[in-house]
């Protein structure tokens, strides 16, 4: 795997956690109950912490002297490599938790594999992140089950959230040249295997939540390649990056 490809691979990991972490942080002070507000803030902070590690390493691999902060705050939309799922808007609380569960499930399986990565830095970061993500998954899947198998109102909202986000699942498993190189080098996991395990666990979870998976194989793509982000990411970045854009180099 060339350093350029490893850089690209690390950006994907770091941008996933950065973009989702920022999305989740948008709930701070707005969640339906205090307990969920704090739990969401904890999740967001975990993801931002993971971002520091992934993007910090990415900057070292790139060798151009860019820090994790530089990568987070000074790149534009087309330079981001997160999957489209993570940049989707929060919607209602149910939609946020559905997005979280769909990502956590993939994240958990991926980090489990990355913990055995042939790259010791990747393995080290993955081991630390995996503990946090195991809890994220427990929490988000319990909430999806609780709301899916809840009242007619909550069930309807969760089914609508699943239908809305369904086309964004496939991108997480569609390997490209970078993923193939990572697999060859023993750095990254076999995404086909991850998908098989993901689909099985998801089916079980949706069953418990009394939700039905849409019969729609089409999947969106273009996030992790940076080719075509959805319109939502740019709006998010204007919020996330405004301070560094307005006051370049500001520190405190």
């Amino acid at each position: 795997m060339s350093p350029e490809q490893l850089f690209e691979y690390l950006l994907r990991l770091g941008d996933n956690t950065l973009v989702l972490g920022h999305r989740v942080s948008e709930w701070c002070g707005h969640a339906p109950v205090l307990e969920e507000d704090i739990a969401l803030a904890n999740t967001a902070l975990d993801l931002i912490g993971q971002t520091q590690m992934w993007l910090g390493y990415a900057g070292e691999v790139e060798g151009q002297g860019r820090s994790a902060d530089d990568l987070a705050f000074l790149r534009d939309v087309w330079d981001f490599r997160n999957v489209l799922l993570t940049e989707q808007p929060n919607g209602d609380f149910g939609q946020t938790m559905m997005r979280q569960m769909l990502f956590d499930l993939w994240h958990d399986l991926t980090l489990e594999s990355l913990s055995e990565s042939s790259d010791p830095r990747v393995a080290e970061i993955a081991v630390k992140a995996a503990k946090e993500v195991r809890y994220h998954l427990e929490r988000s899947s319990d909430t999806v089950i609780g709301l899916g198998d809840g009242t007619a109102e909550s069930h309807g909202r969760m089914q609508a959230a699943l239908d809305l986000l369904w086309p964004y699942i496939g991108e997480m498993f569609t390997p490209d040249a970078v993923d193939d190189a990572a697999l060859q080098a023993g750095i990254g996991p076999d995404m086909v295997q991850i998908e098989t395990r993901y689909r099985a666990r998801l089916a079980e979870l949706l069953g418990a939540a009394t939700l039905s998976a849409p019969d729609a194989p089409f999947s969106q793509k273009g996030g992790k390649s940076g080719m075509r982000h959805s319109e939502h990411l740019g709006h998010m970045l204007t919020q996330m990056q405004w301070l560094q854009r307005a006051y370049p180099g500001a520190t405190w």
């Binding site: 109950v33 205090l34 307990e35 704090i38 739990a39 904890n42 809890y135």
Partner: peptide, 17 residues
């Protein structure tokens, strides 16, 4: 103290709060 729908979520909320 805190609010939670069931015992399991009470533990999770306690962990977070």
């Amino acid at each position: 103290s805190l609010h939670a729908p069931d015992a399991e979520m009470a533990i999770k909320n306690a962990r977070d709060v």
